[in-house]
C-alpha cells in the first residue's frame, strides 16, 4: 500500500474563525481579568502586634550575637551571652510565656495562618473557577473538532497532547483538536500576558512598593505556623551556650596594621 504523504481533511474555514480565534481571545481576556481580580481580592497582610515583633526581633538578636560575636570584646560578649541565654531559657521574650509547655497549637486555629491560607485559597479559586468554566464551554460546544494543521511534522508521541478529545487512531499528528488548542493556550500564553500586563508581575510590583513605603511594617513571619517559638528559643540558647571560642578581631590589630604598611 502506498504511503499517504499528507493526509487531506476538508475543513470549513469557518472553523478557524469561529473556534480557533474565540478560544484564543477568551483565554487572553480571562487572563487579564484574572490578573485584575487577583489584585482586587488580595488583602494587605495584617501587621504583627507588638509582642510578636518583640518575639521575632529578639530571636534575631540572639542569632546576630552568635554570628558577629568576634566583633566585640570578650567581656561584652560574655555578659550579653549570659543575659540572653537566661532570658531565652525563661521564655521572657515569648509572645505568651504561659503557652511554653503546651503542645503547639493547631495551625488551622491560628488566625495568622488562617489569613495566609485564605489568601492562598483566593488565588487558587481565581485559577480554578475560570479554567473549569472555559473547559466546560469548550467541551460542550467544540468537542471533537479538528481546527488546524501544524505546518511541521511531529512524532506519534504528540498525539495525546495535540488530539485530546478526538479518538481517531490513524489521523496524522499534525492535526490539532479544539481541546488541545485550549491546553496549548493555557500553558503558552505567559509571554502574551507579560506583553499586555507589563512584565506580568504588576501585582507583585505594587506590593513591593507598599512594602518599600513601610519597611517597618513587620508583616513577614519568622516563625511559620506550626513552629513552636519556645522550642526555637531554647535551641538558640543552647547554640549560644556552647560557644566557647571567642576571638576578638581587635586582638593584634596593631601588628596587622604595621605589617600592611
Amino acid at each position: 500500500m502506498a504511503q499517504v504523504v499528507g493526509q487531506q481533511i476538508l475543513r470549513d474555514p469557518a472553523l478557524f474563525y469561529w473556534i480557533l480565534f474565540p478560544i484564543t481571545i477568551v483565554m487572553i481576556l480571562t487572563g487579564v481579568l484574572r490578573h485584575y481580580a487577583t489584585l482586587l481580592l488580595q488583602s494587605a497582610p495584617k501587621p504583627l502586634e507588638a509582642k510578636a515583633i518583640r518575639e521575632q526581633k529578639n530571636y534575631l538578636h540572639g542569632i546576630n550575637l552568635r554570628t558577629n560575636a568576634n566583633q566585640i570584646p570578650l567581656s561584652s560578649f560574655t555578659s550579653r551571652k549570659n543575659y540572653l541565654v537566661q532570658a531565652f531559657q525563661s521564655g521572657s521574650f515569648l509572645k505568651d510565656p504561659d503557652a511554653k509547655n503546651k503542645p503547639p497549637a493547631n495551625p488551622m486555629s491560628d488566625p495568622n495562618g488562617m489569613d495566609a491560607m485564605m489568601n492562598m485559597m483566593k488565588g487558587n479559586m481565581m485559577m480554578i473557577v475560570p479554567q473549569t468554566v472555559i473547559m466546560g464551554w469548550i467541551n460542550a460546544f467544540f468537542s471533537g473538532f479538528v481546527i488546524m494543521k501544524l505546518p511541521f511534522p511531529l512524532t506519534i508521541r504528540f498525539k495525546s497532547m495535540l488530539q485530546s478529545g478526538v479518538m481517531t487512531r490513524d489521523m496524522d499528528v499534525r492535526w490539532v483538536s479544539s481541546l488541545s488548542w485550549y491546553f496549548l493556550c493555557l500553558f503558552g500564553l505567559k509571554s502574551v500576558f507579560t506583553f499586555i500586563l507589563g512584565n506580568d508581575n504588576a501585582a507583585d510590583q505594587t506590593m513591593a512598593q507598599v512594602q518599600q513605603m513601610n519597611p517597618q511594617a513587620n508583616t513577614q513571619q519568622l516563625f511559620g505556623p506550626g513552629q513552636d517559638p519556645a522550642k526555637m528559643y531554647l535551641a538558640e540558647a543552647e547554640n549560644l551556650e556552647v560557644m566557647v571560642q571567642h576571638e576578638f578581631v581587635l586582638d593584634g590589630i596593631e601588628d596587622r596594621i604595621l605589617a600592611r604598611i
Partner: peptide
Amino acid sequence: IYCLEEVLLILP
C-alpha cells in the same frame, strides 16, 4: 559603648 557594640553586632 554598649550601644555601639550592639550596632557592630548588626553591622560588623
